[in-house]
């Protein structure tokens, strides 16, 4: 398809990492950038929780060490998301996407709570399993077409990437991008840290949106 994310505004051949900018990738990149700045500038909220069996409300605090680690992970996640939004190389997209998965596990796992760590463990297993189809798809793109460049693949009149390979790529992204569902299960209910949890959801959403463009383009 000729025009998925709009006309190409610019592309930077930066070694293997070809960056290409369309209105779509630029929009997603800017959103990742804005939320990363928000993560840097925000302090976590203090969640109010109702104490069952008593007429009492408690306020949860986030420790400094935990906050620093989760903020670091959230910023790394933002940077990985920005990379995944702009890259024009299928392998680099897989690499940035897996980095999003790893940092999301870090954001969730830093909370010292049994429920939250259970969720992080389960999500970690799914994300790890997701890397197989993700990188497998990138390898198969190279094997079937001889290139990993999205710009080169987009030049073909009809798609030369087999449907199964595209399905593998989507499957891999689904595995990496499952974080919000695990985070929603435990973390949001039991642990404060809205700016970091939002980065989990945002990065997952962004890689889902980008993979749609990738599979329609190549």
């Amino acid at each position: 398809m000729s025009s998925v994310g709009g006309a190409t505004l610019a592309h930077l051949p930066f070694g293997d990492i070809v960056i290409y900018i369309t209105p779509f990738t630029l929009t997603l990149f800017l959103l990742a950038l804005v939320f990363t700045i928000l993560v840097i500038a925000s302090r976590p909220e203090r969640q109010l929780d109702i104490t069952f069996g008593a007429d009492r409300i408690i306020t949860k605090e986030t420790g400094l060490t935990e906050m620093r680690f989760r903020r670091f992970m959230a910023i790394a996640c933002g940077l990985a998301s920005m990379g995944a939004m702009l890259t024009g190389d299928v392998f680099d997209f897989a690499l940035f996407t897996s980095l999003v998965g790893i940092t999301n596990v870090g954001i969730v796992a830093a909370v010292k709570s049994r429920h939250v760590q259970n969720a992080a463990f389960q999500y970690g297993l799914v994300a790890m399993a997701g890397t197989v189809p993700l990188f497998g798809a990138a390898a198969m793109v190279a094997a079937t077409t001889g290139t990993l460049s999205m710009l080169e693949l987009a030049k073909e009149a009809t798609s030369v990437v087999p449907f199964a390979v595209k399905a593998f790529l989507v499957l891999g992204v689904m595995g990496e991008g499952m974080a919000p569902f695990y985070a929603a299960k435990a973390e949001m209910f039991r642990a404060p840290g809205a700016p970091y949890v939002i980065m989990c959801s945002l990065s997952s959403l962004l890689i889902f949106l980008r993979v749609i463009e990738v599979v329609l383009t190549v």
Binding site: F24, P192, S201, L205, L209
Partner: peptide
């Protein structure tokens, strides 16, 4: 591209998420 509208529509969910979580209120959460 209509894909940008699709992206923005989905990002509205992140906005709702941010509205709810940022206050610390259980109702918002």
């Amino acid at each position: 591209s209509i894909l940008i509208i699709f992206g923005i529509y989905m990002l509205h969910k992140i906005v709702e998420h941010g509205f709810g979580l940022s206050s610390g209120s259980p109702y918002g959460k």
